[in-house]
Simulated assay, not measured.
Amino acid sequence: MKQYKEAMPHGPLQEVFKDVFFVTGTMKNEFFGSMWQFSRNMTIVRENGNLTIINSVRLNDAALSELDRLGKVTNVVRIGDMHGVDDPFYVDRYQAKFWAMPGMRIQEGLTVDKELREGGEMPFGNCTFFEFKTVARPEGILRLDREGGIMIACDSLQNWVEPDQFFDEETVPTMEKMNFFKKAGLGLAWLHESQPKPEDFERLKKVSFKHALCGHGYPLKHEAQEEYHKTIAQFFNL
């Protein structure tokens, strides 16, 4: 009998754009020698009644019933090497196809059905993939060609404007001191782990988009491209 990570506290499923859903949940992990508790997000894209889960967060039973009413889960997509603990639960529950980038550290028992590559097959239509090519750990961004361009990111792009209800009291001061809370930020733990080079962000600046749904923080609507360009300039002088 497989053991899955238990569902942790999470918020409601929200339809942030037509057929694009977003839910914020909880993560506990060790960083820099101590345990942190913070929020993380899952995005769900619906196309022709089929659902694609990106940045999986296990839902409780009531929310799973709501998910089932939205459509049929056919794909589970991993776009960040530092996420993925709940991928096995969804792949097994729905017998879904599992998508991941080459070289990712896959959860035990999972098999990659489809490899995510720039210019390759995508889990749904009107979608392209951006790959960070200079990083130590695989990371990418899905660009959904709806609403002027929606970037679905994992750890690279974040929008943690402030701590939310899924943080614990011990973690917040540490993250405040380290300047994690910033509109249209880059993931600080991701930068530390993956060491991306400026050329990745030079390529990213050529991608057109209006909105961003990230693995951490609030949805950023309408002004996402301008805001991330400001942040990239601050970090990489580009």
Rank of each mutant, 00 (worst) to 15 (best):
M1E: 14
K2G: 08
Q3G: 11
Y4N: 09
Y4V: 07
K5M: 12
K5E: 15
E6Y: 14
P12Q: 13
Q14W: 14
V16T: 13
D19A: 09
F22G: 04
F22T: 04
F22Y: 15
V23P: 02
V23A: 11
M27H: 11
K28A: 14
K28T: 15
N29F: 15
E30P: 06
S34E: 14
M35N: 13
M35K: 13
W36H: 15
W36S: 11
Q37L: 03
Q37I: 05
F38I: 06
S39E: 09
S39D: 10
S39C: 07
N41V: 01
E47G: 00
N48W: 10
G49Y: 07
N50K: 15
T52S: 15
I53S: 03
I53Y: 06
N55K: 08
L59T: 03
L59D: 04
N60F: 09
S65Y: 10
D68I: 07
G71L: 06
K72Y: 10
V85Q: 10
V85D: 10
F89I: 01
D92F: 06
Q95C: 13
A96T: 03
K97V: 07
M101K: 13
R105Y: 06
I106M: 03
I106S: 01
T111Y: 12
D113T: 03
D113K: 06
D113L: 03
K114M: 12
K114I: 08
K114T: 02
E115R: 13
E115C: 08
R117T: 13
R117N: 09
G119M: 10
G120I: 08
M122H: 03
P123R: 03
N126G: 12
C127F: 06
F130D: 00
F130M: 02
E131T: 12
F132K: 01
V135Y: 02
A136E: 14
P138N: 00
G140E: 02
I141A: 02
R143H: 11
R146S: 09
G149C: 09
I150T: 03
I150S: 01
A153N: 09
C154F: 07
C154M: 11
C154K: 05
D155G: 08
S156I: 08
Q158A: 14
E162K: 13
D164E: 05
D164Q: 01
D168S: 07
E169G: 10
T174Q: 11
M175H: 06
K177V: 10
F180E: 00
F180N: 00
F181S: 10
K182R: 14
A184I: 08
A184G: 08
G185W: 03
G185F: 05
L186A: 07
L188W: 08
A189K: 07
L191F: 07
L191R: 04
E193L: 15
E193W: 15
E193A: 15
E193N: 15
S194R: 06
Q195I: 05
Q195P: 02
P196G: 04
P198I: 01
L204P: 00
L204F: 14
K205Q: 12
F209N: 00
K210C: 09
L213V: 04
L213M: 07
L213I: 05
G217P: 04
G217C: 07
G217Q: 04
Y218S: 12
L220V: 02
L220G: 01
K221D: 02
E223Q: 13
E223S: 14
Q225R: 12
E226D: 14
Y228P: 00
K230Q: 12
T231I: 04
T231K: 07
A233N: 12
Q234L: 10
F236P: 02
N237Q: 13
N237I: 00
L238F: 01
